[in-house]
Design a protein around this nucleic acid. Sequence first.
DNA 1: TATGAATGAGGATTCATTCAT
DNA 2: TATGAATGAATCCTCATTCAT
Lengths: 191, 191, 191, 191
Amino acid sequence: MSKLQDIITISRKIIYYKGYQATSISDILEEAHIGKGQFYHYFSSKRDLGLAVVEDLVKEWDRDVFEGIFATDLDPIVKLNKMLDRTLAIHLDEEGHSGCPAGNLAIEMSEHDETFRLKVHYIFDRWISSIEGALSELKMQGHLTSDIDAKQHARAIVSMIEGGILLKKSQKEDGFLTNAIAIIRAQYRLS
Amino acid sequence: MSKLQDIITISRKIIYYKGYQATSISDILEEAHIGKGQFYHYFSSKRDLGLAVVEDLVKEWDRDVFEGIFATDLDPIVKLNKMLDRTLAIHLDEEGHSGCPAGNLAIEMSEHDETFRLKVHYIFDRWISSIEGALSELKMQGHLTSDIDAKQHARAIVSMIEGGILLKKSQKEDGFLTNAIAIIRAQYRLS
Amino acid sequence: MSKLQDIITISRKIIYYKGYQATSISDILEEAHIGKGQFYHYFSSKRDLGLAVVEDLVKEWDRDVFEGIFATDLDPIVKLNKMLDRTLAIHLDEEGHSGCPAGNLAIEMSEHDETFRLKVHYIFDRWISSIEGALSELKMQGHLTSDIDAKQHARAIVSMIEGGILLKKSQKEDGFLTNAIAIIRAQYRLS
Amino acid sequence: MSKLQDIITISRKIIYYKGYQATSISDILEEAHIGKGQFYHYFSSKRDLGLAVVEDLVKEWDRDVFEGIFATDLDPIVKLNKMLDRTLAIHLDEEGHSGCPAGNLAIEMSEHDETFRLKVHYIFDRWISSIEGALSELKMQGHLTSDIDAKQHARAIVSMIEGGILLKKSQKEDGFLTNAIAIIRAQYRLS
DNA sequence: TATGAATGAGGATTCATTCAT
DNA sequence: TATGAATGAATCCTCATTCAT
C-alpha cells in the first residue's frame, strides 16, 4: 500500500472516531508515524486531507455498494438484502460504534464547507437512486403493489437507516439499527 | 430574561449552527456582548456552558413536547400530529437548516463525553417512550392492529425523523423531512 | 508607557534592525518579555503590528518634523537646517546603522502590501511638500533664484538624503550621508 | 544557456521582485521547473544561490557598465550619458518597478550577511569610482570648474540615482527618477 | 459582578535541507 | 545528474483559562 493511501486510511479511522474538526494533524502524524513535512508533502492542508478521506469513502461506496451490489444483475431482493447485510455488518462490528461515516460528516461539515457537502451528497444520492431502481424492479415483478412511489420509499429507507445509526450511537443500543432494518425487510417483504 | 439565560440562548444558536467544537468562547462573547470575566462568572468552562446548552434543550423538550403535548389528555392521534407539526415547523423554518440540535450533538459528542451523551440520550429516550405510549393508546382504541410492537414502531418513527433531518441537511432538500413525516402519518393513519 | 506602546516601540527597533519579514513574533515576545497570548491580545496579526509600527513612525514624523519644524514660523533656512541636523543626528547615532526606517520599509514592503506602501508614501509626500514650501519661501525672500522649480528640488533633496542613507548602510561609511547633506547645504546656501 | 545559469536568471527575477528572504526555494523550483535534487546539485544552500545571484548582478555590471561604458575611450560626457540612459531604460521598463536590484539587497542583507554586503559594496564602489574618473576627465577638459571634488560628486550622483529609484518605488511615480537624472545632467552640463 | 490583561499549550502550516533511489 | 520522499525546527496564530483590579 502506498504511503499516501496509508495516511488516508489511518486518517479515515481517526476522523471517523473523533470527527474532522476534533482530529488534529498531530493525531494523524502520531498514528501514522510520519513527520509534519511528509504529511504536507502529500496534502496541502488539513482540508485537503479531509477531502481525500471523503473521496476515499466515496470510492469505497462506488466499489462495494454501487458496482458491487446494485450494478450487478442480481435479483432486486438480493440486492437490497445484500445492502442491508453490509450495513449491519459494518455497524455491528466492534469498530462501527461511531455512527455513519458519511452521516457524521454530513452533520459536521455540510454547513461549513460546500465541497465536503457535495461529496457526501453524492453518496446519499447514488444510494437512494440505487434503492429506487431496485424498488422499481420489484414493482415490475409484481412483488410490490404498483401504487408505491419508488423514490419516496427509497428516501424513507435511507432515512430510517441513517436515523437508526444515529440513535444507535447516542443510545448505545444496537437495537435501533437492527430494528430499523428489520422493519424495512418486513415492509418490502425482503426476507 | 437573565444574563445567564441570555448567554445560554445565544450560545445555543451558535453551537447549533457551528457545532460545539467549532464554536469558540470568543464567538459567544462577541455575539453576547460580554467580557471574559462575565462568562467565567456564569460558567466554569466551555464544557460547562455546553452542558448548560444541552440542559436548556432538554428543558425545552420537557416543556414543549413531553409536558406540552404527550402529558396532556389529548387524543393520541392529536398528540402525534402535534409532535410532527412541531418538528416540521422547526425544521422548515429559515433558522432550521442546521439539522436536529439533539442529533447533531449526539453525533459530535457521544463518543467524547459521556455526560453530553446522557443528556441527549434522555431526550431521545423520553421522545420514544412518549410515542410508544401514544401508539399503545391507539392500539387500545383499535386504531392500530393489536399485533404491532409499540416500542419498535416508536423507535422507527424517531429514526425516520432523525434520518430525514440529517438527509435534509446534507441534500439540501426539504423533501427528505416532509416525505418522512408524510410516510409516518400514512403508516399510522394520523391524517 | 502603556504595554501596547511598549510592544510597538520594541518591535520598531527590531523591525528597523532586522527588517519586517525577517522579524519573527518570537523575536518580539522575547525582547518584550511577553507571551503569545498577550501579543495577540493587542494585535490581530503580525501585519497588524507591522502597520502599527509604521503608524508610530508616521506619528513621530508628524510630530517631530512636520509640526516640530516645518509648521513653525521659523526662517525657512533654519527649518531646512533643523531637518538636516535631525537626519544627521539620527543616522550618525550608534543605533542608526540600519538605514532609513521609512526607506527600508518602502523597499521591503511596497510591492507586497499596498497599505504599508501608502503609509510610507505619506511620510515621503509630506516631507517633500514641506521642503518644497521652505524652498518657495526662500525664493520669495530672494535667497534663491526665481527660476528654480521648488517641487523638483524638494524631490532631489529627499532623493539625495535617502540615497545617501542607503549607501551609508551598504558601504559602511558615514561620508555618504554627511557628503549628501553638505552638498545640499552648499547648493541652497543653507550654511 | 546552461541549466545553472537558467536557475540563476530565474531566481534573480524572483528575488528582485519578492526580496531574498521572502523568496522560497519552492518559488524557484516551481518557476524553473526543476526538482529539489537538481537545485541542491547546483547550490549547496539558499544562501549559496543568493550569493550566485548577486555575483550574476556583479558580472552584469562589470560587463555592461564598467567594461561596456566606463572602460572604453569614449568621451566622459558620452560615458556618463550612456550610464544614465541605461539606468533610465532599466527602471522605466515594465519589469523595473521593484527598485534597484543592488539597492534592495543592500537594504535587506547588509546587516545580516557580510558576504552579501561586500558584493553589493563592490558594485557601488566601482560605480562611484567610474563616475569619479569621468568627472576627473571632465575637469581636465575644462568642462567642469577645477575646484570640484570629483569623489564627492560621484557619490552624490549615485546617491541621487539610488534615492530616486527608492522614491519611485514607494511613491509610484517615474518622475522621481527622471527628475533626479535630469538634475544630474543639468548640474554637470551633460546634455 | 464585571473587565480585559495575561498565560501558555496546542494548532495548522512553511521551509530549508537531507537522503534513498 | 536528477527525483521527490522525508525530516524537523520554526512560524504565525487560536483558544480555553486564570488573574489582578
